[in-house]
Write a protein that binds this DNA or RNA. Structure first.
Ligand SMILES: [Mn+2]
Ligand SMILES: [Mn+2]
Ligand SMILES: [Mn+2]
Ligand SMILES: [Mn+2]
Lengths: 217, 217
DNA sequence: AGATATTTTTAGGTTAGTCTAAAAATTATT
DNA sequence: AATAATTTTTAGACTAACCTAAAAATATCT
């Protein structure tokens, strides 16, 4: 099996590669993991020896099929634990990340299968992100940043891009939650803010929010 | 906070010191943790700098109050997770140890408080061992090895000394479980085996079992 | 008590994962 | 195309947690 550190690298590479075809740069990984580029070089060499990534000097790195499978396995655990914390242990969605970051490294196939069943085979985590199944498949749903919607368009909140505690607590305060219906009443060209209708109430949200909240039309 | 390795040492020292007054020897710790005595010497030096233990060369080691508090904190987590695995995730009592050994190192005060509440503040783990409360207090109950009982004495199974998978599965096979009533019908001097009554049935158990099963008279 | 056996510590070494600073390669700019 | 800026790798070093082998201290035996 892999070390905690190796697993964190694999997950980071997976996430950085989700929406890009090219190799992931040393610097990008270093930034995501708060390490130095030189440490990343060392680690990707090791991961490449272990057949998790393909790495050529100066060319960045991409996950192999085995690497992808490993990554989705870790993500599955992370997201299932998040569901557990929120649904069973009264955590709020902004409190789960750091704990899940630790729990995702627990090694026990039985544990994760049973947890999945115990939670009723959830399909998404508390932030709207899909939970990969045992084989690593994860359903991608259609979702658009609120910022991309036009005046008059409607939809349902289905996810967040930034899942930092600060952002999530701010959403809580504004009473914006996953599952709620939203309609764009106005787009303000001046500052990029949006006037939306949510819960039959009108609410003005900043551009910062609009570029971090996903809507399913 | 402490590293996983430091925590494992603290827990080992706690358990080795439970029934002895003297300092715990380097060798005893090494044996328990499957390391070498020289590694233990290094580590106890570090633990002593961190005020977790008192250590004088060649004199063995004892936990400070702070060390004891730390130890019971880890044991509390270990045992609560064991209860979770058995009561909620369909693990059997012989499957939980290795997983709990990992889970006990997760750092999150809220997690363990909520888990405790979720489980209904259990007092004992699946092996009959007491679960320390938040302040580290743990209730010691009266328990005697079956081997120490005399002919005619009765009691309830309340714990096991050895909680290895092999022993626990053997108890399962013999249909010996915590909570069951037992009466000593015969003690066989020849091989130290016992003839007991359990579930209205008679059963002969070896001396090995009798010296690993606790009874509350 | 003196010799012998056992335990514990010391000395020196290894590996994983990190770092800083310098060198090399790549990319961007004029 | 040459130069400058940026990115990436290399070189060398550090710490935590281990190890083996040898030395020192303690315990046991005659
Ligand atoms: Mn992690
Ligand atoms: Mn999430
Ligand atoms: Mn452990
Ligand atoms: Mn137990």
């Amino acid at each position: 099996m892999f070390s905690q550190s190796e697993e964190n690298y694999i997950k980071a590479i997976y996430h950085l590669g989700e929406f890009s075809e090219k190799g992931i740069s040393t610097n990008a990984i270093a930034k995501k993991l708060n390490t130095k580029a030189s440490s990343v070089t060392d680690m990707v060499r090791k991961l490449s020896e272990k057949k998790l990534v393909v790495y050529k000097k100066y060319q960045g790195v991409t996950l192999t099929e085995f690497g992808k499978k490993t990554a989705t396995g870790i993500i599955r655990k992370h997201r299932l634990w998040e569901v557990f914390l929120v649904n069973k242990l009264n955590f709020s969605w902004d409190e789960v990340h750091d704990v899940a970051e630790q729990l995702e490294h627990i090694k026990s196939p039985k544990l994760i299968d049973e947890l999945d069943a115990f939670l009723g085979h959830p399909k998404r985590d508390p932030h709207g992100d899909p939970i990969p199944d045992k084989d690593g498949n994860l359903q991608v749903i259609e979702k658009n940043l609120l910022a991309t919607l036009d005046k008059g368009e409607k939809g349902i909140c289905v996810g967040v891009d930034d899942s930092s505690s600060e952002f999530l607590r701010f959403l809580d305060k504004q009473e914006i939650a996953l599952g709620k219906h939203i309609e764009v009443l106005e787009k303000e060209p001046f500052d990029g803010s949006f006037l939306i209708k949510i819960d039959e109430k009108e609410l003005s949200v900043s551009n910062k929010i609009a570029t971090n909240l996903y809507i399913q039309k």
